[in-house]
Amino acid sequence: MTTAPPQETDSTSSDGIRALPLRTAGYYLLLLGLVVFYLLPMETGFMTSIKTAVGVRESLPFLLPGTDLSFQIPFVEFDVDTMLEQTTDEKWRDAYDTLSRGMVNSMLFTIPSTILCAIFGSMAAYGLTLVKWRGQVFVLALFIAGIFIPYQAVIIPLTELYGFIDLQYRLGAIWALPFLSEERHPTILELIITHTAYGIPICTVLFRAQYQTMSWEMIEAARLDGAGLWRIYRRIVLPLSIPMFSVVFIFQFTQIWNEFLFSVTLIRSSVDEAASVTLILGQLGQAIEGTDFPLRMAGAFVAAAPTIVVYILFTDKFAEGVRV
């Protein structure tokens, strides 16, 4: 009975819990343990973020405000009034107010970079996989080498480069347009270019993996049907790589959104007009008087929210894409 597969318990469910094999119970126990293991830090963070300063001091981090452990049954001391007293949404408001500026900035460079990485990566992969030409292997080698360039190695050349190019000065006329500012948008543009360039190699390799499984005969059929290089990409290859686009969107969005080193290098300060969310988050709740843990926790949640939204939006296609 213990060796029976879990499915069988469903058919004998009239027997109730007695029919539950020991092994299945073990699985569920293990799963429960894993759930607790993974969710406990999140839960702790959330509990901390809704506590007042007193609440943080007087209750254990992972328990509700106004709750404390005791040595008498039921081992928990809980009082509704104390709980309400020690609960606040103030930290969330604070975090949101402080971070919203950075969130907008981060959006401004993350979304364009993600889209550009995906488009360029897909086109490069198409040219390197489904089109035959001389010297292809060499170019591919360059792309692959690009994946392995460490961030640390490029930060100095990067600042030198933008110092030399000076987008603020060269594109001066553009920054005078409405909705654009000279203090903010040149840096955003620098970040877009940098993240796009840095993301293209890995995106190319991801798309290439998919394109290598595409049928050559199908591409040849399209050629004989009268479609040129661009039309084959537009009408055959691109529609077939939508699932992979979802994978790349999620992957690149998270990557760029959470990125810190380029932000520090190119924006420099969290009080800069163009400061990214990660840069501001680093400073959030840090003061000479001490660390405001509830504020930092709330800030972390607020900053992570967009990546979660992206996951939810692309989940279906993502699942299809990783199956490729």
């Binding site: 049928s215 005969e217 199908m218 040849e220 059929a221 399209a222 055959i236």
Partner: peptide, 8 residues
């Protein structure tokens, strides 16, 4: 084509 090579 042998594999038909239809556009899926």
């Amino acid at each position: 084509f042998q594999s038909y090579a239809l556009y899926p």
